[in-house]
Simulated scan of single mutants.
Amino acid sequence: MGAEMSDVIEKFDTLCDEATAAFGEELDISYEMSLLRILKFVKENLGCKEDFICRFENILMSNNSPFEVVAFCMRELQWSEIKDFVVLTMNPSQDHS
C-alpha cells in the first residue's frame, strides 16, 4: 500500500471515528451528515475500493463500530463483495433462496 493509499484509508478511519462520535452526539455535525461525508469520500477514492472493502468488512465484524456506515454506503454503492461477505459471514441460516 503506497503512501497515498494509506492516507486515504487513514482519512476513511477518521471519518468513521467522526461518525461514531456523531452517533453518540459528541459532535456538532449530525450522524446523517457524517455518513454522507463517508459515502462522498469513498466515491471520490474508488481506486482504493479493495481497501475500503476490507474496512467495511472490519466494521461489520466489530462490535464497537456503527454498522450503519456500511448499510448507508452500500445502499448507493451496491458492492457485491460486501453483499457476499454479509451473506457468507453474517447470515445465521444457510438457506440462500
Results as ranks from 00 to 15, higher is better:
Leu77Lys: 00
Pro66Ile: 09
Thr14Gly: 11
Ser80Gly: 04
Phe72Pro: 05
Val86Met: 15
Lys40Ile: 07
Val70Leu: 04
Glu57Ser: 10
Phe41Gly: 11
Ser93Val: 11
Lys43Cys: 06
Phe52Gln: 02
Met33Cys: 06
Met1Tyr: 06
Met61Asp: 11
Ser80His: 09
Leu60Met: 13
Arg75Pro: 02
Phe67Ala: 05
Leu36Trp: 10
Ala22Met: 06
Asn58Trp: 04
Gln94Ala: 08
Ser30Arg: 14
Cys73Asp: 03
Thr89Met: 10
Ile29Thr: 15
Asn63Glu: 14
Ser80Val: 13
Phe23Leu: 06
Leu35Gln: 09
Ser62Asp: 15
Ser97Gly: 10
Lys83Ser: 13
Cys54Ser: 08
Pro92Tyr: 05
Tyr31Trp: 08
Lys11Ala: 00
Glu81Cys: 04
Phe23Trp: 06
Ser62Pro: 07
Gly2Glu: 09
Gln94His: 07
Val8Ile: 15
Phe12Leu: 15
Arg75Val: 11
Asn64Gly: 07
Trp79His: 00
Asn45Val: 07
Arg75Gln: 12
Asp17His: 07
Ser6Thr: 03
Glu18Ser: 08
Ile38Gly: 11
Phe67Met: 08
Ile82Cys: 04
Glu18Arg: 13
Glu44Phe: 11
Val69Cys: 03
Cys54Asp: 14
His96Lys: 11
Gly24Met: 08
Val69Ala: 01
Thr20Ile: 09
